[in-house]
Design a protein around this nucleic acid. Sequence first.
DNA 1: TCCGCCGTGTACCATGTGGTACATTTATTA
DNA 2: TAATAAATGTACCACATGGTACACGGCGGA
Lengths: 204, 204
Amino acid sequence: MYHMVHGGDQVPKRAATDLDGLTASCLAAFVRSGTLDVSLDELARDVGISKRMLVHYFGGREAIEERAVLLLENRLRAQFAPENFPPRITLQKVVNALWDRTTAPESKGVLLLVMDVTRRAWNGSPRAQAFYQEQQRLWVELLMRYLPAKNAVEDVLQSFQGAVLAYLITGNPEPGRRMLNRLCAALESRQKLHKKKKRLHSRG
Amino acid sequence: MYHMVHGGDQVPKRAATDLDGLTASCLAAFVRSGTLDVSLDELARDVGISKRMLVHYFGGREAIEERAVLLLENRLRAQFAPENFPPRITLQKVVNALWDRTTAPESKGVLLLVMDVTRRAWNGSPRAQAFYQEQQRLWVELLMRYLPAKNAVEDVLQSFQGAVLAYLITGNPEPGRRMLNRLCAALESRQKLHKKKKRLHSRG
DNA sequence: TCCGCCGTGTACCATGTGGTACATTTATTA
DNA sequence: TAATAAATGTACCACATGGTACACGGCGGA
């Protein structure tokens, strides 16, 4: 009886824990490589386990990627949760902070990995597109706290992405920062104007 | 005598012509696939020749890619030569025209191919980086005719790239257009202010 | 006419890939 | 302890890739 019940329980605690740990190791390997395009052999070598066991635990390559991307998604969600940012500062300051995090050397791997997923998205992968949308949502949610105008925020995001691209290729974060600062300044001054106009309007 | 001279002439006219023609066919195949990552077998099938002959003519895979990218570079250079754009229109109008060309359905393949090269650039390929720089140069040269402020133009380019990314993933060109229009409008009004200030300054 | 070269097709190779068959070891548990 | 299930290693497979060896055939020149 016991063993039958146990047989039905496909995910005993220890296995689950191990799987999570393995997933973390795999994600770390992907980050080190800056891409998901790592062969099972290389991945296995990187995480110190046999390819045999990788396939055994995850069931196949796709599952490894899926779990790793999911984990990445969760980590990014935690990192860019609005609670982690001071409330009453300017848009420019937040964007600058985000830019610093993004272009910090230790973020290079994650950045490359995210861009790799982005590439899969523009090549049509539904999973990668979902990832992109979720990141978009996250950042919009975050930035809306500092500039409550969805269109403007989405503009900033597009520009941000372009800046990331240029940074990755040239290695120089300054043009991107400059551009973002100017853009934010312009948007904020426009915001003030609008507010003024509205006030006048409601008074008149 | 004749045959010796002929032997020294490594590139008889007909071979050169064929090579150019083949290169064009290969580029067309790359464009159809939206990437350089096409196997020799597939490429051969696509251009209607045997893999054997592809390798024979070009000497190897790398040479095929090199020649195709070079040809692409030349075509883009021709397409975005300043002579092809009316001189005295607003920055916004030019950028809008560029955006239309970029997001036209028939440009999808080229766009994807360029993004593929861009990816190689951020992954460290020197050739791809050179391609990126050259494109950058081209566009700066073009846009400087409509907004003679290098920094501002470079800002526009970064944003443009970001817009392209979003367009490729979502398939919707409108957010990008909106953003670029707003950005250009802001830059141009700022430009006018500067001019006014300068005039006042020189008067006083 | 014969020779030699170029173009071409076919079959092949070495390597790398995701994945598996089989055997063996290592717990678990009745 | 004996029986059973899980974990693991080794060797292997099928397939795709870039590239090559070899043979064949036609064409121009002596």
